[in-house]
Design a protein around this nucleic acid. Structure first.
Length: 562
DNA sequence: TTGGTCGGGATTTTT
DNA sequence: TCCCGACCAA
């Protein structure tokens, strides 16, 4: 038996070494999910002689995929991995399938539409049809949800279907796919039996992390690859399911059991992250859930200190006080030693900014922390999606690049128009200019029908595109684990991370739990989200979890203005 | 067609 | 608060 197995607990050992039947692992927070999955991969390669290229490991976020690859590289030799283990998000996998089997083969260039692009298209449709009073954001969400179910169960109203079909037409005309299409088209690809056989052969071992966040379409993709196979491993925690709004459904666990009747089940219930106090409190929260798969999480750690609950009257005060608290704990030793003799506790010393995280429900809540931290000189990193951080210039360059690569891209054309570019009829010229970029001077004669200031900007952007293209590749994630900065992050974003000191901000009626007027059944999900937040804290210091409450407001308001 | 003002609604994320 | 759509005036 390999040495590294000794370091695992019995349940983890089973999860790592199990063979010859599908495996479903139910694992609580802090129980070593990723660690177990990683060790299973190592075990497969080193002890079962499974080729790396036969392994397909799917995660839910790019960050998780990246993290897993990095950790695996530390254990195994890099070159072993380079030979082709696939670790990535389901979307990345779907895209990979489509690229290798279809798009690259036929040399088709295409665009991937973000939610924003979909909205642009839908606006156009609604406008052309002369419809009014339609909430386009909701429309986009409904279309996305429908796509994620794949099989349409209920018949939606005819107008909706009309728009839906029209939307699909536009995507086709634009040579574009939205995120959901990536999965759907990949599923369709595997409906071809020879194609399916090819990939079944290639991937003998499939592992899925964060199984609770898989939606129906994604499950279908996995299932088609794994059905009838014995080497599928799914690991997840139904209590941490927080992506129902994207069509994820915990029923998937039951579905798995139905589809893979020879499955074995393993439970990881030993928590290595939470103090006794935090564990107890978080369990009390999650036990209120209806329809829950019961688990018996227990921790190896001490009881720890009490969770601190702070009360404020405004979010400004909340941010100020949290900033002060962080300053106290950074300058920790001297401050505490006078007061309470805690300085003997060596775990509390050397606290650095990197140890802190502020968790909140809405991105907008991060603004006030940025503001206050700037004033206090507290270094921070705010975790946001890339698109939110892009400057207008970058966006322009990006759209321009898109239209150069795929001249049918209608959403890009509209966006550019909105940004002041009238490019109709110029796209080919611009494409040409872009190709020549490295060899010749671009002159204004190339764009006879553009005004000279526009030409200047287009030329400027053409040069910039290359820079952004490179930046795109380098910029992996906005979150740096080791940075000497306080992390500002949403509760959703914090899943899978852990911090020695965690503040959950904005616990206030309507925000946590987030409530929309007419939808109460999302309360269950909000509870799980809060549970995720609570279990992010590693008790490396006397204080590790702060929950700050604000005075109840009568109405839901936004964005937390006073 | 464009421009200006008024009012209502505003989550969380995947290349 | 801030952004977008609706509506109205030119």
């Amino acid at each position: 038996m390999p040495v590294y197995l000794d370091k695992l607990n019995p349940a983890q050992q089973i999860a790592v070494t199990h063979q010859d039947s599908p495996l479903l692992i139910i694992a609580g927070p802090g129980t070593g999910k990723t660690h177990t999955l990683l060790n299973r991969i190592v075990y497969l390669i080193e002890n079962q002689n499974v080729l790396p290229e036969s392994i397909l490991a799917l995660t839910f976020t790019r960050r998780a995929a990246h993290e897993m690859l990095k950790r695996l590289e530390n254990i195994l030799e890099k070159k072993l991995l380079k030979t082709g283990i696939f670790i990535g998000t389901i979307h990345a996998f779907g895209l990979e399938l489509l690229l290798t089997e279809f798009l690259q083969k036929k040399n088709i260039s295409f665009s991937i539409y973000t939610e924003n692009d979909s909205i642009i298209i839908l606006k156009e449709i609604v406008k052309n049809k002369g419809l009014k009073n339609i909430n386009i954001r909701n429309l986009q969400k409904e279309i996305s949800l429908m796509k994620n179910q794949i099989e349409e169960t209920n018949k939606p109203d005819p107008l909706f279907m009309e728009i839906y079909n029209c939307y699909e037409e536009y995507l086709k005309k634009s040579h574009a796919m939205d995120f959901d299409d990536i999965i759907i088209k990949a599923v369709e690809l595997l409906e071809d039996s020879s194609m399916l056989l090819k990939y079944k052969k290639r991937f003998s071992h499939i592992l899925i992390d964060e199984f609770q966040d898989i939606n129906h379409a994604q499950y279908k993709l996995i299932k088609s690859l794994a059905l009838g196979e014995k080497n599928i491993t799914a690991i997840g925690d139904p209590d941490q399911a927080i992506y129902a709004f994207r069509g994820a459904n915990v029923e998937i666990f039951l579905q798995f059991k139905k589809d893979f009747p020879t499955y074995r089940e393993a439970y990881l219930e030993t928590n290595y992250r939470s103090s006794g106090t935090i564990l107890k409190a978080s369990c009390e929260v999650i036990e209120k859930s209806r329809l829950r798969i019961k688990k018996n999480i227990h921790t190896e750690l001490d009881k720890g200190v009490n969770i601190e609950i702070m009360n404020f009257t405004s979010e400004k005060q909340e941010a100020e006080m949290i900033a002060k608290r962080i300053e106290q704990m950074i300058g920790g030793a001297s401050f505490f030693s006078h007061d309470s003799g805690w300085s003997n506790n060596e775990r509390c010393e050397n606290k650095s900014f990197a140890d802190f995280a502020i968790l909140y429900r809405l991105q907008a809540e991060g603004n006030i922390f940025e503001e206050v931290f700037q004033r206090h000189g507290i270094p921070y990193q705010r975790v946001m999606t890339k698109s939110e951080k892009k400057s207008l210039q970058e966006k322009r360059a990006q759209y321009l690049l898109r239209i150069i690569q795929n001249s049918y891209d209608f959403a890009a054309e509209i966006e550019l128009k909105d940004m002041g570019f009238q490019l109709t009829g110029q796209i080919n010229l611009i494409s040409e200019a872009y190709k020549k970029l490295n060899y010749t001077e671009i002159t204004k004669d190339l764009f006879p029908s553009l005004s000279s200031s526009l030409v200047d900007e287009v030329v400027n952007l053409l040069f910039k595109i290359d820079i952004y293209k490179d930046a795109e590749d380098i910029e992996e994630d906005t979150y740096e684990k080791m940075a000497e900065k306080v992390t500002l992050i949403t509760l959703h974003g914090a899943k899978g991370l852990e911090f020695p000191v965690v503040f959950i901000a904005g616990c206030e009626e309507g925000i946590i739990p987030y409530l929309k007027e007419n939808e109460e059944n999302e309360l269950e999900e909000e509870r799980r989200l809060f549970y995720v937040g609570m279990t992010r804290a590693i008790p490396a210091c006397l204080y590790n979890l702060f929950i700050s409450f604000k005075k109840k407001k009568k109405k839901i308001y936004f964005p937390l203005c006073r």
